[in-house]
Design a protein around this nucleic acid. Structure first.
Length: 653
RNA sequence: GCUGCAGUAGCUCAGUGGUAGAGCGCGUCAUUGGUAAUGACGAGGUCGGGAGUUCAAUCCUCCCCUGCAGCACCA
């Protein structure tokens, strides 16, 4: 690729030295010039901050760094990318009639979408993996060429690859098309790539699963088959990743929900939860906590109807735009001319406006912070349901702040502090804010959007937080903040939200009398801290792998006897703990202590107090804490006061 | 909703074209035993629902329901 050029260029290396080369030299040639061993190990380069293929020429002065597999970030991107191509080639070698589409790098690996009539089976994945290893062993050189668009289109038409033709059509006209080969196999790709397929770590990848995926993410287009793979720079890292997946599966809230006897679901009520005593204890403990927090935060609590006539939903706009997600309830009264049509509320906001609209409001009433533990029902698409995380019946810790435009920024900042304290008390310190700005389809003037987006951004800064902008992701009526928390194994969950809205108040005729004596339209800030109790509890369970903080644990203490002579004392201990506000249970069953310890440990009870002859004599207890093997002996009074303190919710400490 | 896979005892799972089995759990009895399963005996299912093929279906076919993975959705 390099060509003779009269121009000299200066390349500065990471060690501070710089070297002079003829313009047009490739990064690979630079690596070879530095050392032959580097040339062998090199996989790519970074040139002026851009990830660079070793075969691409460098035309001007630049900073350059050569990468090997040791440079995790670049190496992962590169190998995952080339694995995608190698997999596509393997698939086409095994089934030549399969059409290829796209195969991007994703977290931990890649996927590639194929168009094939028959489904891929798990056995097919094994065959593909085997074929991939063969291709890697061929050590085929990677070659790229830049082609004019017409030539590329014609090529793909000749190859009968219609998806590639469509892909080219979607690429902006001025972008060069980079054609890529390893061996005889070809794909369209912007690169960069490895030097040859042999640089792929053949022992550090695995094909994970096959699933359907829409072409171009459009549910109206054809459904393709997507094969997911994971790859790392070494097999130890792959092993570690697979181990992490096993750990994640162990803390699945659906599994723990059964093991801890928290809740169940059944097919007569898909997407809805039957809470068992243990689970409901978590729920009410969390709800009691939120109720106290909201009172302290200046909210008034209300409660509004579940079944509401369609008239209100027509007025709010939900009937038109949200109907397919609503549970419709028809009532056929004996002498009525027609059926009454109602819907279960999918959201609380229209109802809160009804409360606001009772009586005439003055500017003196604002900001009015109205909260409800609002039970909502949404007919979510069947494929969206997931344990208690995504359900059809749930309760939001909902709230609406009615305020003037000037109050938005302060109220938002105030909410962010409110939320941050709660997240901290619930043990989540790792969370971030996303600001979603005006979408394409929207209402309201540009000036208003400017002001509202600025108000939310300023509020974040005022509360002391940074935010990330999500361009165009706001609601059609206003911008929003999303509060995303990261759990113990790195997964992200959107829980809290705050959305600015004047559309709903307007549609439902909300108004207040201003200083000037005229009617004004209030703004409404839709906000939730936990999101929904159901989802948040699911997150709590997974975050803690079932070992909830003591104050939230549904079963906090089991007093377990070793011999039946200790029954009376154990009962006395249990009573004392209950009186001190601890959720304590008595286990005087005719079972060995080993058995009891095992059972309650599996049930994730944080503290087991064992009682035998010795403890009865000395009026002590042998304390065993969940996750610890050793025990220690404590006096009755000490343990009662210690556990009573641990059982106190954080806001009451 | 779409694609694929799955649905057998409370749970986890094995199994077969001729009306089903294990472990745990549950019940009874014996056992009073120091920190992750004491032993014996016993009771549980008609194999998600419906239709079809067949002399005969839990097993084959079709439809439906529910779940799982991914996609789409989550104003």
């Amino acid at each position: 690729m390099s060509q003779i050029s009269p121009n000299k260029i200066n390349l500065s290396l990471p060690d501070g030295n710089s070297r002079e080369y003829a313009a047009g030299i490739t990064a690979g040639e630079v690596a070879a010039d530095i050392s032959t061993s580097l040339a062998k190990k090199a996989i790519s380069a970074t040139v002026n901050g851009q990830h660079w293929d070793l075969a691409w020429p460098i035309e001007a002065d630049a900073s350059i760094a050569i990468h090997t597999l040791k440079d995790e970030d670049q190496a992962n991107e590169l190998i995952r990318h080339d694995f995608a191509h190698v997999m596509a080639r393997a698939v086409q070698e095994l089934w030549p009639d399969v059409k290829v589409t796209i195969g991007p790098v994703i977290e931990n690996g890649w996927y590639y979408d194929f168009d094939r009539k028959e489904s891929f089976t798990p056995e097919d994945l094994g065959a593909i993996e085997k074929k991939m290893k063969e291709i890697i062993n061929l050590r085929d050189k990677v070659r790229t060429e830049i082609w004019p668009r017409d030539k590329a289109v014609q090529y793909y038409k000749d190859q009968n690859e219609p998806f590639k033709v469509e892909l080219i059509d979607a690429i902006p006209g001025d972008e060069p098309l980079r054609m890529y080969w390893h061996g005889d196999w070809q794909d369209l790709c912007r690169g960069p790539h490895l030097q040859h397929t042999g640089q792929l770590p053949a022992d550090a990848f695995k094909l994970m699963s096959v699933a359907g995926a829409y072409w171009r993410g459009d549910s109206n287009r054809e459904m393709l088959q997507r094969i997911y793979g994971v790859a790392f720079t070494g097999k130890e890292k792959l092993k570690a990743y697979l181990l992490m997946l096993e750990e994640a599966a162990k803390r699945d809230h659906r599994k723990l929900g059964r093991e801890m006897d928290l809740f169940h679901m059944q097919e007569e009520a898909p997407g809805q939860i039957f809470w068992h005593p243990n689970g409901w204890t978590i729920y009410t403990t969390l709800q009691d906590y939120m109720r106290r927090r909201q009172r302290a935060g200046g909210y008034v609590e209300v409660n509004t109807p579940q079944v509401v006539n369609r008239k209100l939903w027509e007025a709010s706009g939900h009937w038109e735009s949200y109907q397919e997600n609503m549970f419709i309830v028809e009532v056929d009264e004996d002498h009525a001319r027609e059926k009454t049509v109602n819907a279960l509320k999918p959201m609380n906001c229209p109802c809160h406006i009804q409360v606001f609209n009772q009586g005439l409001k003055s500017y003196r009433d604002l900001p009015l912070r109205m909260a409800e533990f609002g039970s909502c029902n949404r007919y979510e698409p069947s494929g969206a349901l997931h344990g208690i995380m995504r359900v059809r019946g749930f309760t939001q810790d909902d709230g609406h702040i009615f305020c003037t435009e000037e109050q938005i920024e302060d109220e938002t900042a105030r909410f962010i502090s409110f939320l941050s304290e709660i997240y901290a008390e619930l043990g989540f310190t790792n969370w971030s804010i996303k600001l979603s700005t005006r979408p394409e389809k929207r209402i309201g003037s540009e000036e208003t959007w400017d002001q509202l987006e600025k108000a939310l951004g300023n509020a974040c800064k005022a509360a002391g937080y940074d935010y990330e902008i999500q361009e165009g992701e706001g609601a059609f009526y206003g911008p929003k903040l999303e509060f995303v928390l990261t759990d113990a194994i790195g997964r992200n969950w959107q829980c809290g939200t705050l959305q600015v809205d004047s559309n709903m108040p307007e549609r439902l005729d909300a108004a207040y009398i201003g200083k000037d004596g005229d009617k004004h339209l209030p703004y409404m800030l839709h906000r939730a801290t936990l999101g929904s109790f159901e989802r948040f509890i699911g997150i709590l369970i997974e975050e803690h792998a079932g070992k909830l903080p003591f104050w939230l644990a549904p079963r906090q203490v089991v007093v377990a006897t070793i011999v039946s002579d200790a029954d009376d004392y154990a009962s006395e201990v249990c009573t004392a703990l209950k009186a001190a506000g601890v959720r304590a249970e008595l286990d005087i069953r005719n079972e060995k202590i080993n058995y009891k310890v095992r059972e309650h440990s599996l049930g994730k009870v944080p503290v087991i107090l064992a009682v035998g002859h010795r403890e009865v004599e000395e009026r002590t207890l042998t304390v065993r804490r969940l996750g610890e093997k050793q025990t220690n002996v404590t006096s009755l009074d000490d343990i009662v006061s210690e556990l009573a303190k641990a059982a106190t919710p954080p806001d009451l400490l």
